[in-house]
Amino acid sequence: MQRRVYPAPCGHVYLFATCLVDLFLPEAGLDAVHLLEREGQRVHFPRAQSCCGQPAYTSGNPVQARAVARAQLDLFRQPWPVVVPSGSCAGMMRLHWPRLFDGEAARVAQAEELATRVFELSEFLVEVLKVDFRDCAGPPIDIGLHTSCSARREMGTRAHALELLGALPGVRVSTHENEVECCGFGGTFSLRHDDISGAMVQDKVASLQANASHFVTADGGCLLNIGHAAKKRGCALQGEHIASFVRRRVERKA
């Protein structure tokens, strides 16, 4: 992955919430808004937004994915950064939208321009806003971190999340066994190959739980997968979106 050149903050950001955050994890979206505002950014939320198209794209339905992505493409007309509280969706917009519109020159150009200003939330907080949490002291806590595989490989999200959590005084990230192994979500994979997906997420829950009672992730899909698997098994492991955890820490509620 090439080292990305980051712009200086301009005071305005777009938030692209993603469908999972919008429908299942809205508090995480709100927490992201708070964190951005805390750093002096005005957050703009285009209300016509829905989904990046990833579910259809990874299921072999590029036509439907293209239609949904196209509906988002015109929503970010100002040259402001687009912040996404989900690494895999940010990767979809940054790396796969230009390919998705292959054959439509004007849209490819538009997607390529947009790609330069799409950022995953923790990436944006660390690299662009250069957050400083040194005065946000809190009680010591051990937490686990799970990073979406495509987010780690396409967006470098693991490094950004570690840096963001590392900026919080008192927070220690405990590594778990097979940390870089996939949690078994994979979009429709979790429905189509539910047995394999179930075996993967059970292993993930077990290894997270062995090291911490609490974990965070910057990806909505993984969070729902791991969190709901833990809930089904009745185990105490608690998961949270990284935005929610960071907000609670800086507001001294955790």
Binding site: L23, P26, E27, L191, H193, D194, V201, H228, A229
Partner: peptide, 12 residues
């Protein structure tokens, strides 16, 4: 397949 290994997804 979701609920065979996970609690049901319920919108907020």
């Amino acid at each position: 397949g979701w609920t065979r290994h996970r609690a049901p997804l319920v919108p907020a």
